[in-house]
Design a protein around this nucleic acid. Sequence first.
DNA 1: GTCTATACGTGGATAGAC
DNA 2: GTCTATCCACGTATAGAC
Lengths: 190, 190
Amino acid sequence: MRTPSQPKEDVIEKLGEAFRRLGYEGATLAKLSLATGLQKASLYHYFPGGKEDMARAVLDQINGVIQEHVIQPLRSNSPPQDRLKQMVKAVDQFYDGGKLNCLIGIFILSASHKLFENDVRLMLKGWIAALAEVGVAMGVKADVAHQRAQQWVTELQGALIITRGLGSKSVFRRTLNRLPEVILGAGNAN
Amino acid sequence: MRTPSQPKEDVIEKLGEAFRRLGYEGATLAKLSLATGLQKASLYHYFPGGKEDMARAVLDQINGVIQEHVIQPLRSNSPPQDRLKQMVKAVDQFYDGGKLNCLIGIFILSASHKLFENDVRLMLKGWIAALAEVGVAMGVKADVAHQRAQQWVTELQGALIITRGLGSKSVFRRTLNRLPEVILGAGNAN
DNA sequence: GTCTATACGTGGATAGAC
DNA sequence: GTCTATCCACGTATAGAC
């Protein structure tokens, strides 16, 4: 039980960055070792279950971040419009203006997606539900609000792919800006 | 030059299915061999450049399919509404109702994305441009039409991820149905 | 807790028979 | 054109010293 050279949280953070860049299959232990600054054996000390264990830790951490920076602000008692703004800001930071891939997407598309499908599903559902609540607080009927929340999360996922595919951040930016109109069903303000 | 046991096209088709299921990194030669019914050495006969070569062939084939079933119908001289309907039908078939992953997304998120980014970008741009033309034919101003086309393709990519993430086809279905309203900017008809 | 060293399977790729 | 056999690098994972 010697003092760790870095907190486990930091290790998980770095693992997350690596998975984002490389995908699950592409993130080899050698690369994860490089990314964390720990030797492979040390990684196994932290994560006895190996790579799958590391991925799960990353997902757990992400889930925490989402809870803190997305769900909680959405459930605060600020005016609904402000809550949306706060979430947009958090999302913008989290994906670094669209430059970073979405780990949820990475895991969904990976060959080993079955390992993580439950965790991923819960995260998506939680996000959508919290967003729908804000819609309701804005006077939208519950089922419609849910549908619109689902649609925006869908757009966001797509935007993170297309942004990288087109090599331009504009789609990401636009998707963030569209949030209020999507939730309010305000039509496409083009 | 003996007669091949199956046309090269069929081999590429099967490779494509494998890449969709497994991702680029996850598609090992052993699995590609299984998927095609050809031994590894035979695959190298068709694709001397190895896995990268196979992926490129798959992308080329997809590009052909898109040209034939998406771009061409969009540029036909049917009424714009019918052109959209035709594309939706093709897309529905192509992704088998949302069950199949999008190869474009797979390659974009893969660790080796740089190998394919040019091909992918061209395909996306071509699709968006053709879709925007239909918008123009419907009376939408060119720049607005382009933005809306871009938005729908974004939604489609997102839908293919979320559909798998939530394990329900409804998001995919909805995205297909939304095409006309997105292009026309008709607001969210929820 | 972190390391070096190592085991063992699998990855991509090639040689050469038929 | 397809195969079997094989090469070597790299993949995951573990043993054991400090």
